[in-house]
């Protein structure tokens, strides 16, 4: 798709929090219609990158840019980014006691996609289909957002929101952790549905190759110590899973490029 603006372009991104630099110059470009993945050690900065894309107010952007379809989004508030089509599936979704799931979904769809999208039979149909695909019983509509949800239920609920909000760019932060085998397959199908054959894009943060087998990402980026140390094709995931990060770091030090 040459000539088109990539859905996401992160360039030379330096990010700190409370005086500590966490991201030390990151570059990731996701062309329209592609799915990329980030793998990396615990604490390497993956969630930081996801939060910064969504606009978490606690981080200091020290340098670099984040662009959505060629436009910088760094000056936008989180809700403006959401309304522009950015979605984040949280590693740790937050509970909001007393806020009913059904209500919340309707309000969110209305905020992000406009009032009309949240009204009438079309919305109800959409909701019903998405819930049955994700195996979420309809009783969840009257429960409170993430309140008392099991780990896997929280992750399914994140994907339900993704399917209803129909983002242009979906960032999924360890959505597969805590999901059972069927859950992982369903989530993968959801991501494929949202991205494949469209102008959209997705960034999947994960520790495991299983979800990537279903999704077949176009590229995998490996993050260590706040930097992308390697990027490569889908094969990189299983190589990494077999050999570990130390091995990868050695290969990189020896000048290997994982194309």
């Amino acid at each position: 798709m040459s000539g088109e603006k990539p859905i996401l372009a992160i360039s030379n991104l330096h990010v700190g929090i409370e005086g500590t630099e966490i991201l030390k110059g990151i570059d990731i470009t996701i062309p329209s219609g592609e799915i990329h993945a980030i793998m990396g050690r615990n604490g390497s900065g993956k969630t930081t990158a996801a939060n910064v894309i969504m606009g978490h107010p606690s981080y200091d952007i020290e340098d670099g840019d984040v662009q959505l379809s060629g436009e910088s989004i760094l000056d936008l508030e989180p809700w403006e980014r959401s309304r522009s089509g950015v979605f984040l599936s949280f590693q740790y979704p937050q509970a909001v006691p007393g806020l009913q799931v059904g209500n919340f979904l309707r309000k969110s769809v209305s905020s992000v996609r406009g009032d009309d999208a949240a009204k009438g039979a079309a919305f109800r149909e959409d909701l019903k289909n998405a819930m049955s695909k994700l195996n979420i019983p309809s009783s969840f509509l009257s429960r409170y957002v993430n309140d008392g949800f099991s780990g896997g239920e929280k992750k399914r609920f994140e994907i339900l929101q993704m399917m209803l909000l129909k983002p242009r760019l979906a960032v999924l932060d360890e959505t597969d952790s805590g999901l059972d085998i069927d859950g992982i397959r369903t989530v993968a199908e959801g991501i494929n549905e949202v991205v494949r054959g469209t102008e959209n894009g997705a960034l999947i943060i994960t520790h495991y190759s299983r979800i990537l087998e279903h999704v077949q990402p176009d590229r995998i980026h490996v993050m260590i110590g706040g930097k992308i140390v390697a990027s490569g094709g889908p094969g990189l995931a299983s190589l990494l899973e077999e050999n570990g990060y130390d091995w990868l770091e050695e290969r990189v030090a020896e000048g290997d490029v994982f194309e």
Partner: peptide, 25 residues
């Protein structure tokens, strides 16, 4: 909690309203 709700398209005031109304639910 606020960030979570804001990431779903809700302004800070709307997010706070949701949390407060949830508390009173």
């Amino acid at each position: 909690q606020l960030f979570y709700l804001m990431s779903r398209g809700h302004t800070e005031a709307e997010a706070l309203g949701m949390i407060v109304n949830g508390f009173f639910e």
